[in-house]
Design a protein around this nucleic acid. Structure first.
Lengths: 356, 356
DNA sequence: TCGAGTGCAGAAAGCGCTTACTAGCCCCCA
DNA sequence: TGGGGGCTAGTAAGCGCTTTCTGCACTCGA
């Protein structure tokens, strides 16, 4: 159907080798020949077959990006950062929604390996149930052995396992751009405590998720510095998804456990939105009666009602870094891990605890 | 490096044809042979080379999705709808950011054609300067002639040109899932007018954009039904980008043109957010003094300050439809165009015009 | 008992490229 | 004047699969 190299060669009266060389410009070709070839290409509207090229040249123009959900700005921002870097190299980003499902994550990894994708970046918190990460490491090892590159963005370093062989030459292992969720959450909770809050509800994320775990850990560390707060707040940890609905639903439960609580921390801005909505519905004033805070500082968070106190992670920048690392434009960080430290952003959804 | 079919065949003591048949399951193979082959696959950790397969079978597992910006939820939602359908067919979505740049759009179209992508969906408003769409049509024709499928989502039908040949058999042309932006905008403006507003500012989108054009047109149609409003509001149309910043900046200009205006329509929810922010900064009460409305009803719009009156487009659903159409799961709509009608969502950012 | 089926498996011809390797040609210097 | 060398361009061998065609070994009905 479509024109092939041979068609072009015939029309230009040269061999396919010459056409290939003109197209790739990696070999001297006489100007007159080049011209004839280019004319033939034009006339036949020839479009090179990337698959054949990839097969012959043992290369690929594909880069995989695994996300939980493209519709979630958290992932959208990371993806756009990666995409920006990748596009400059004329590579095509394959963005796959795993929905947070480990099965699908592994499955996509295989699919991308089949495509011989030049690299893959795993974004967002990882499912961690004690087995899955080992399976990912296994696949990763195999993928890397085949010449692929693997970068993580927003999840903890991946242990390639005991038999990962000799120290990988030139950052050939898995490079990680990690988020200091622990530090961020700790700072946020500390901020609340410093405002006088001691009864702090915490709406945690989905189970078996590394982001959930590290954020909760940060929260608990901050509580540990203040025994009174720890005693009162520890029972106020509820679990949900990283969604608005989860936040909304959590409010009833939290209020049931402690009608006197003065602050609610959400593990995520979306969750915080749900918390605010539920509170508004009950005509609870924010932050006069209850302070609310989120995490991530998504773009909309400064325009919510009220503007959200949160922890900013420079997601697009993180994606960019991941992309650069993937392409080898940046030297791998020492230890293979680049940690990004979030920054507390205090807005008006938090305020001093009301003194009873 | 990586194991090949031949390696597996050798290890299993069969021919490559047999291995291929076991793997594809499209040809009877004796159970005992199958077992041996699968063992060899397992032992060698064989992963099929999709490029070689695609070359030999003249097929591809890639689907292209062109968006302005993945980080924008508008596109993220559409993309996730498409992705959901596409994933079910075990295809890989290549999501490309064009940034609204027509050059890049054409360039990505070529890149995807090189990959022999099974299909491509063009999302969001198109750049329309009188030339570009013809160029897109040209590429589209070529791409479709080569067996590709092209679907649009959120842009007007594409005229394939006069010489598009005989009526395409079985919806082989470009199928379009269009948004009735005109109707949506018209309903929104009519709503404002019914609330007594006559001095309505309008923050339009980027030039040469079909979405910008149709929304503005809808606005004007509604104004036309009310001469007084038309007279006062027509001078209050300003142009910007589809961004929060544009909305923010537009406020100063609008207030300069008419300090008495009582409503501002934004061409987009993000723009509306900027408008609200600027108004809040000036301590203008919304909607008591000025009503604000957006367009799209992005997820965050109900949690903004105040919750935004807007026009809902079921973006994910639209993406799904586009995906189904692309895969041929849904029959092509009559005329090749499926129009989605948005719905007015009245929230508290709009209210009656204050009577002077 | 024999020929026609039937069920499996292999041989080999590509798919559309890239890329050694080879070869012709002309120029220049010894 | 002859041969080494710099330019170009062609030949052909793959890259790792799929698939058509062929072939072998049985089974089975007549």
């Amino acid at each position: 159907m479509a024109a092939t190299l041979a068609d072009v060669a015939e029309r230009a009266g040269v061999s396919t080798a010459t056409v290939s060389r003109v197209l790739n410009g990696n070999y001297p070709v006489a100007a007159s020949t080049r011209k004839r070839v280019l004319r033939a290409v034009e006339e036949l509207q020839y479009v090179v077959n990337a698959q054949a090229r990839a097969l012959a040249a043992a290369s690929s123009d594909l880069v995989g990006i695994l996300v939980n959900d493209v519709a979630d700005p958290f992932f959208g921002l990371i993806a756009s950062g990666i995409q920006a870097e990748v596009a400059e190299a004329d590579l095509l980003p394959v963005i796959c929604n795993t929905g947070g499902d480990p099965e699908r994550e592994l499955n996509y990894l295989t699919l991308l390996q089949r495509q011989r994708a030049r690299g893959v970046v795993l974004t967002g918190g990882a499912w961690d149930d004690g087995h899955h990460l080992a399976a990912v490491a296994e696949r990763a090892r195999h993928y890397i052995a085949g010449g692929g590159r693997l970068v993580q963005c927003g999840r903890p370093p991946l242990a390639l396992g005991p038999d990962a062989g000799p120290p990988a030459p030139e950052g050939a292992g898995v490079i990680t751009v990690a988020f200091d969720n622990r530090g961020g959450a700790r700072a946020l909770t500390a901020h609340l405590i410093s405002l006088g809050h001691t009864r702090i509800g915490y709406v945690s994320g989905p189970e078996h998720n590394t982001t959930t775990a590290t954020r909760l850990e940060g929260h608990r560390r901050a509580l540990a510095d203040h025994p009174e707060a720890a005693r009162l707040s520890e029972p106020l940890v509820v679990t949900g998804a990283f969604t608005r609905t989860a936040g909304y639903d959590a409010v009833a439960e939290l209020l049931r456990r402690d009608p006197e609580l003065t602050a609610v921390l959400a593990s995520n801005d979306s969750v915080a939105l749900g918390v605010c909505a539920a509170l508004r519905e009950r005509e609870v004033e924010i932050p006069a009666r209850i302070s609310v805070a989120g995490f991530d500082d998504l773009p909309f968070s400064r325009d919510t009602c009220p503007p959200l106190t949160t922890v900013r992670i420079p997601l697009t920048e993180a994606g960019r870094r991941a992309g650069r690392l993937l392409l080898g434009r940046d030297a791998p960080p020492p230890g293979g891990v680049l940690t990004i430290h979030p920054e507390l952003v205090a807005r008006t959804s938090t305020g001093p605890a009301k003194r009873p």
